[in-house]
Amino acid sequence: MASALLEGLSGHVSAMCVLRAWEARLGDGSACDAAVVAVDRDDRGGLTWPRRPGSFVAFVLPRDTPAYCLLENGAAVDRHQSRGSIHVCDRAREWTLRPIDESVQFLAVGFEAGGMTSLCAPAGSRFVDFERDRDEMPQAASALLALARGIVALAPVTAAHVSAAMEHMLHAFLIGLASMQARFAPDGTGTSDRLAAWQVRKATALMRSRLGEKISLPEVAGSCGLSPSYFGRLFKKSTGLSTHQWIIEQRVARARVLLASTDLPIVEVAHACGFADQTHFTRVFSRRMQMSPRVWRRVASCNPAGAHVPPSGCDEPFDVPC
């Protein structure tokens, strides 16, 4: 077996069929171990990965699967049936994957904490850990499951160009996984002054989805795995605006569209865009647009196309590509 991921396995190892096991070199020079494994139904404990502090393993069951159970230090922590799933497990603890009804096929990806830092941590920060598994994975998990399905499908093919493609897919998988669940912290070097592109996208998408309600800085920072103060400083360096200023600009942009394209009373537009009341909305809108919402509506009715253009510095600069 070419992958260190399968070293030290215990349990009903004879029930395991390794379709492929390999070490993958990633684009940043780091490495990860991967294996595509099938396990027969097992009445004697499943497969157990021993403790290996500083390492993680992601179990990916990319398709609708038979029932299986995941155990942490011998205690069941998750049980799934008939749907794809992703589990990220800290190998400071022992993990067991146990099929229940019939054989299960899965992709296992092993990596070191230091490798995650070099692969996808923002400059001046380090990888800390992953959030624990959640009942509802983000919508982005569907993209990771699609990548895993592609890797599993290519596993039997040993051609060099296919192996290269699989390494790129694993690279993308780990970056996507980090964007959903990894937590980072300052590394003390003081070299970072900007967020990673995926953190900007994740933070702005979250704030944009909650424009009509209150959202706290700790909540936004937590979605990127950073402390509120560190996140706030990096966000302003990355976008030129504080999170509060960014939200206000987005709310004004939404109000412009609603004023131009609907007959909603101005007080309802204010509430739909997250402003406390019409007075506050009118004051903020007038300061930014140099005219009141009522006047803007009249002007926009004569030039509908202009109503949908976001104000300068509002939207496009923050959709940063990878």
Rank of each mutant, 00 (worst) to 15 (best):
G190E: 04
M180I: 05
S142Q: 14
R201A: 13
T239R: 08
L174C: 08
R287H: 15
T96Q: 09
V60I: 12
A260Q: 12
K202I: 04
T262V: 14
S14A: 14
V18L: 03
D40M: 07
A260K: 11
C322I: 06
A197Y: 07
G124D: 09
N303H: 15
L195N: 08
E213G: 00
S82M: 03
V299S: 08
V220N: 05
R83P: 01
V157M: 00
V39F: 07
A178Y: 02
P186G: 06
A76L: 02
A182I: 06
L5A: 12
M180V: 03
S286Q: 15
H168F: 12
G110W: 03
H12N: 13
S227E: 15
S223V: 11
P304C: 15
A164R: 14
A260V: 14
D319A: 09
P265K: 08
S238R: 11
V128C: 12
A75F: 07
V200C: 15
Q199F: 07
P317M: 09
L170S: 05
S223E: 13
H308P: 05
R183S: 04
Y68K: 08
D133Q: 03
R79S: 03
E213W: 00
V200N: 06
W22C: 04
G84D: 01
Q245P: 03
R201N: 15
F111N: 01
R288K: 15
L258R: 06
P218C: 14
G8F: 09
